[in-house]
Simulated assay, not measured.
Amino acid sequence: MRAIALALIACTFVQSALAAAVGPEIDPGASLGVVQNWIYNYRTKPDYAHVPAAVRVLFHSQTFKEPENSGIYLGFIAGAISSNPAKAEQLVNSFFPVPPEEEWVIVRAIAYSGLPDWRNLMRKVAPKMPGRRVMIDGYLSGAQPTLMDIPLEEAKPGMMDKLRGTLTQNPFKKEERKLDTRISYATHQDLLDILWGYYFATGSRVPIQRIVQMLPWSKSRDTVDKLTIGSMARYTLASYSVRDASLRDYLRDELARQSGPVKEPLREVVEAADTVQLGAVRKDAVAAVEELKTRGSDARRNMDFWGQLGVGALALGCVSAAALGQVAVGIPCVIGGSASQGLLSFWEKQQ
Rank of each mutant, 00 (worst) to 15 (best):
G142I: 01
T223K: 01
R234P: 05
A126W: 03
Q189W: 09
L147K: 07
A111C: 12
S218W: 10
K174A: 08
R182I: 07
L195R: 04
S141V: 08
K173Y: 02
M214N: 07
P130M: 02
P157A: 11
I208N: 07
T181H: 12
Y139H: 07
S220Y: 00
R123E: 07
Q169Y: 03
S218H: 09
L195C: 12
L152T: 10
D137F: 07
K156Y: 06
L121S: 04
D137W: 09
A186T: 04
T187R: 09
M122S: 07
K178H: 15
R234F: 09
Q213K: 13
K178Q: 13
T168D: 07
T228R: 12
K173Q: 09
G138W: 11
A111V: 06
T223G: 00
E176L: 07
E175R: 08
E154Y: 14
L163A: 13
P157S: 04
K173H: 08
P127R: 08
M148P: 06
S231C: 15
F200N: 04
L121Q: 04
E175L: 14
S141M: 13
H188I: 09
A233P: 02
I211S: 09
A201P: 00
Q189I: 02
I194V: 13
T168W: 14
E154S: 15
I136P: 09
P151E: 14
D137P: 12
L227G: 00
R132N: 06
M122C: 08
Y112N: 03
G142Y: 00
M159I: 15
M129Y: 02
G114Y: 08
R123M: 15
P216N: 00
S204F: 12
G230R: 00
Y198E: 02
W118E: 04
M159N: 13
D161F: 08
Y235A: 01
L152R: 05
T146H: 13
P130R: 05
Y198I: 01
F172W: 11
L192W: 13
L152N: 02
F172N: 10
I208S: 10
D190S: 10
L195K: 01
